[in-house]
Amino acid sequence: MRAALAVATEDVIVYDLDGIGRQYTALCAELPGFSVRFAMKACPVDEVLGHLAGLGSGFDAASPQEIVQALRTGVAPELIHYGNTVKSDANIDEAYRLGVRDFATDSPEDVAAIAEHAPGSRVFCRVATTGDGALWGLSRKFGCSPEDALRVLDAARAAGLVPSGLSVHVGSQQMTADAWGEAIETLAGVLEALNRHGIVPDRINLGGGLPALGVLDRHGRPLEPPLDKMFAVIREGVERLRAVNAAPLDFLLEPGRHLVADHGAIRAHVARLTSRHRLDGTREDWLYLSCGKFNGLYEMDQLQYRLEFPTRPGGQSVDAVVAGPTCDSDDAYAQEDGLVRVPRTIASGDPVWVHSCGAYAAAYATRGFNGFRPLPYTCVGGSAPDGAAA
């Protein structure tokens, strides 16, 4: 990969398809029997999606446009579900026309719309979680209470839909195994209530949240999520949920960043290393990169990406704030203590590798804020061509 890009003069996102494939295979080995629905929003790159489809993955889509992109991989419509609980009538109608028959929901109003525009479809109700322990909790916009879940699926049954299951999402980049245990206990309680009400789901979707391993926290320290313990809790939870349901259960996952984050990197360049005094008289060094929050590093205010600089013998280093090239003050690592050790000899134009940024690098890029265009990408390994337009 490095040799192929050694003479590159422009920034580029590089996705390692073989690494993504190994991550997928490892996940399936840890959680045998689970069906995977890759969360497309994490990496909407055709070559990545095609590679995962070839390995057996389905897709979690959040819009008709994502459904169309998923179908281009050749995957069957029954391996695509509409996982977004926010859908207009037109969205539902288009998804149904494209062949999707599995819809997430969390409100009676959405159920009524699905019944009208996607009659006879299967619905799974998303149950809210606290999001505690995650870098990005998802506790407000999506999901309903356990009590509402019973009402939502009862309304689905009355409207001629199939109340097929329940789902949760414990928060993006979840860092605790306890979050999975708490979510599973909540689901067990909802399953028992549904069964008493004559509704017997046939699937449980444990959503996303599995973490990336190579990113750093805001202080530059390894995050070190207890992944083995997470898998153990999930495997135990499968048995717990099967024990309380009156019929067999299938299990799904919607991994996103867990599959792609650590297998994507950006080859960027140094814009400038500067030093100046703040108003309080303290001196501060800043390293400006050619890419930042708006074209590849959207999550840089909540975590740090590992940087790799050219190796030069000797020389001193400085602790610098890392920032992107735009005039937006949010285009930077957290500034209170998010300092990075940088070679003092680094010069404008020097290459820099930004590691573990395969999740959301392409998805969150703007069309060109401040004139800094979205980064192109290339894929290495697998059967993908060695270049594509972003």
Rank of each mutant, 00 (worst) to 15 (best):
Y24K: 06
T186Q: 11
Y364H: 13
T130S: 15
R37M: 06
R122W: 13
I204N: 08
R367G: 15
E94I: 01
G358A: 05
Y377V: 09
E284Q: 15
L216F: 00
T326R: 02
E47N: 07
R240I: 05
A53G: 07
Y360F: 15
K293T: 08
P351S: 07
W286R: 14
G198N: 03
R278S: 07
D11Y: 01
V127R: 05
A179P: 00
E182K: 14
S164Q: 14
H51R: 08
D350Y: 04
L150G: 08
S164E: 15
G371R: 03
R344L: 10
K141M: 12
S348C: 12
V12Q: 11
A334G: 09
G208W: 02
A70G: 09
M300F: 02
D154H: 12
H117L: 11
E308T: 15
L339W: 06
E78M: 00
S35D: 14
S145W: 00
G315A: 04
S35M: 06
G83W: 01
N205C: 13
P201F: 09
I266V: 14
V75G: 04
H117F: 14
T25Q: 13
P385L: 10
H219T: 13
R240Y: 00
E78K: 06
H263Y: 15
I204G: 05
E239I: 02
D337H: 13
D331H: 02
L252P: 03
P64V: 03
E109W: 02
P226W: 05
G74S: 03
Y364F: 13
D110N: 12
A39W: 03
L55A: 04
A90I: 05
A188R: 04
A3G: 11
S329G: 09
E254Y: 04
P163R: 08
A179R: 04
D280I: 05
V322Q: 05
A149Y: 07
R312H: 11
D154N: 11
A320G: 04
D386N: 10
H51N: 01
K293P: 03
I199L: 12
E336L: 11
A177K: 06
A384R: 01
Q173G: 00
G324I: 07
A128Y: 01
A42H: 02
P385A: 11
D106S: 06
D102H: 12
D328N: 13
T25G: 00
A388P: 10
G381L: 04
I67A: 06
A128R: 15
P310W: 01
S348K: 11
E224T: 12
S145D: 03
V244I: 09
L375A: 01
V380T: 14
D217F: 05
R101A: 02
F38D: 04
R157M: 02
R312I: 09
S121E: 05
A232T: 14
H263L: 02
I114Y: 05
D178I: 11
L241S: 12
A61F: 03
D350G: 03
L55P: 02
Q302W: 10
A26G: 06
